[in-house]
Nucleic acid binder design. Structure first.
Lengths: 212, 212
DNA sequence: CCATCCTGAACGAGCGTTCAGTCAGCGGGA
DNA sequence: TCCCGCTGACTGAACGCTCGTTCAGGATGG
């Protein structure tokens, strides 16, 4: 998580307790946000599910928006952590891109409710928090972009604009959490195959990456 | 627009007036929804921008949700109308798919704020309205699917699962309205090229559709 | 007994919604 | 021509409710 991320101010002193309570609050909030969204969830509901009184809740946050920030903090740190290890895979760019897509889809699968909230409620965030979100996204895109650029250099890929390609491919992975209701009859593996296939060979199929 | 779509009940009698007012309300609502979302927009604000008093507004709708329905009605009828004509293009499946993607992206460009509201606020809808939304989406997917299936039969494409491919490709088009802030430096044409290229040839590029 | 943490009733703001009242326009009777 | 009554659309203050937030007081443990 970026060191620049502002700490959520609290009244309580005990650092460990704060962390524990923040976890509780985040868990509880996520549950509700995923089902009803941010605005239709009341602070009272979050407090109850988190096994806290309303007053106690407000000693760990300064406002309701802080709860949304908590959720986003979790997204940020989670992605930071997971995507680094996923991208570290070695091999030729084609295999690397494939495993990056697979890792992203797996991540999106594990935290699909988080992704949903991310897309549905980001317009609620203040400019400051939005900037952070953009930052995380940009870093994620850069990782894909790096792979594509290397693939271009080594003759595996022929992407006109690696940045644009990275944005588009990364977005493509969001089909799994965002179109879940439409993909009910498919499982993660099938969708992953389809996405990887589309990215690597297009609809034409069966060409394989250029050097295969 | 499907005939089954429930009419929004009104107090006012004059049919033409109702239609005109509904347009006003929809225009006004869309303006606010796109900027702040449904829940953060008050009925008063919508009334004001629509040049109506709060009371007058409520003679044209029964509840705030009706306003969201108005917006969705517009999306539905718009898509119904536009996508039919776009899909009617003849030619080989490759060209047809390309022009379908281009048309979709153009549509998404024209109504990007609408699409944003669609993705951000759909969880607000009642089950009944959601079903309609799914229906429209399914019909849209079917059109893409039909093209892909023909392409498969005629040997242009090699999509394992045409339905899944259609869903994924259609979703891909949503990158333009949904990742707008991330694509600021690109214009519609560039993004369209990138999407079409990815769909037709994958990241490998320069293969062309199989029969080219 | 003090420091901490927790409780939940209370508060004020803002929301969606209603409704008693206003008003313009129209038609027909004098 | 004027008046009267009526219809249909509009007005905006008011209502009731829920929300986010606060705070005086209670509980706990060291």
């Amino acid at each position: 998580m970026p060191a620049t991320m502002r700490q959520i101010e609290t009244v309580v002193k005990d650092r460990a307790l704060i962390a524990r309570r923040h976890e509780q609050i985040c868990d509880s909030a996520l549950q509700h946000f995923a089902r009803k969204g941010y605005h239709q969830t009341s602070v009272r509901e979050i407090a109850e599910t988190a096994h806290l009184s309303v007053g106690a809740l407000y000693t760990y946050i300064k406002s309701k928006e802080d709860i949304l920030l908590l959720v986003y903090h979790r997204i940020f740190s989670l992605f930071q952590e997971k995507m680094s290890e996923a991208m570290a895979k070695s091999g030729d760019p084609a295999a690397q891109l494939k495993s990056a897509i697979e890792a992203t889809l797996r991540l999106y699968d594990d935290y699909h409710d988080l992704i949903l909230v991310l897309y549905q409620e980001s317009h609620t965030l203040r400019r400051e928090a939005l900037q952070q979100l953009f930052g995380v996204d940009r870093r994620y895109v850069s990782m894909f972009q790096a792979i594509i650029e290397r693939g271009n250099r080594e003759g595996h890929f022929a992407a006109q604009d690696p940045n644009l390609a990275a944005i588009v491919i990364l977005f493509l992975c969001a089909v799994w959490p965002l179109k879940r209701w439409n993909l009910k009859k498919y499982d993660l593996a099938t969708v992953t195959d389809s996405v990887v296939s589309l990215v690597s060979r297009g609809i034409g199929g069966s060409h394989g990456f250029r050097n295969n």
